[in-house]
């Protein structure tokens, strides 16, 4: 296997997101993996980064699972009180409004899926008032309901209505988890370019699994590529080490 040093920047340009960045999208589009990996990437680029886990609708696989790894890298994660961490209750800690009022260089807000997950944003309207923010919609065209342009535009409308906020950009996250191929990344990119034209929203960046980066020619893309080191894995797998920058032989994979 090729060993290489992973640069902070992959692609023609650097990821251009600062201030408050709200991450939305449909269920299972990959918002949480993106917010964790984006937080680490920007931290390593020298920015101050804070993340809020605002997922009030998902019971498992939330940012809170990676809170310890992020804390080790000096990234603050704003979570509900410890005794409610494993509850399926819509608990919104007041600290979130505080971090919106006093954003750091990059304040990431990881929101739950669909319009239902985004409803919580409307309750933060006071904190968001007169404040500049980016709200990015994560799209995995290999997921149900976002396989076509119509589905993506529908969920955009629903999220905007529920959150009373405006989506400002797109993120392409085409993947089939461990079965993702370079071809999926390319066809996902083409889909997002099409969606960007149809929606009038800029494509902020696309993602690719860390292991696939050596196979990808960044010159092909007009946007940055964020490498994803999977953190939200089932108990029989180990999350990819966020600190290591070299590729290693992949762990043995479970085949059904």
């Amino acid at each position: 296997m090729i060993s290489y040093i992973l640069p902070i920047r992959i692609g023609k340009v650097d990821i251009d997101l600062t201030g408050i960045v709200v991450i939305v999208g449909n269920f299972g589009s990959g918002k949480t993996e993106i917010s964790i990996n984006l937080a680490v990437n920007r931290k390593k680029a020298g920015m101050d980064v804070r993340v809020a886990d605002l997922d009030l609708v998902n019971p498992y696989f939330r940012t809170r699972e990676a809170a310890a790894s992020l804390a080790k890298l000096g990234i603050e994660v704003v979570l509900p009180p410890k005794e409610y961490l494993q509850a399926d209750l819509p608990i919104l800690t007041p600290a979130v409004a505080g971090m919106i009022r006093r954003p750091c260089q990059l304040t990431l807000i990881d929101v739950g899926g669909d319009d239902m997950g985004a409803t919580v944003l409307a309750s933060l309207a006071d904190a968001f008032k007169d404040r500049k923010y980016s709200m990015i919609q994560v799209v995995n065209p290999l997921r149900p309901f976002t396989e076509d342009i119509k589905g993506c535009l529908k969920i955009r409308d629903e999220i905007e209505t529920a959150s009373k906020m405006t989506i400002t950009g797109l993120v392409g996250n085409a993947n089939l988890i461990d079965e993702t191929t370079g071809k999926d990344i390319l066809s996902g990119y083409d889909f997002l370019i099409h969606l960007s034209t149809e929606s009038g929203l800029p494509l902020e960046f696309i993602t690719a699994p860390y292991e696939l980066i050596p196979e990808i020619n960044p010159e092909h893309f007009s946007c940055p590529v964020l490498p994803i080191k999977r953190q939200l894995v089932p108990p029989w797998k180990k999350p990819s080490d966020l600190n290591k920058n070299r590729t290693e032989p992949s762990a043995s994979r479970w085949t059904p």
């Binding site: 299972g28 019971p59 498992y60 696989f61 089939l176 988890i177 461990d178 089932p234």
Partner: peptide, 10 residues
């Protein structure tokens, strides 16, 4: 178990 419902696989 809950993991079957919550995890994502192709």
């Amino acid at each position: 178990d809950g993991l079957i419902g919550q995890m994502m696989e192709p």
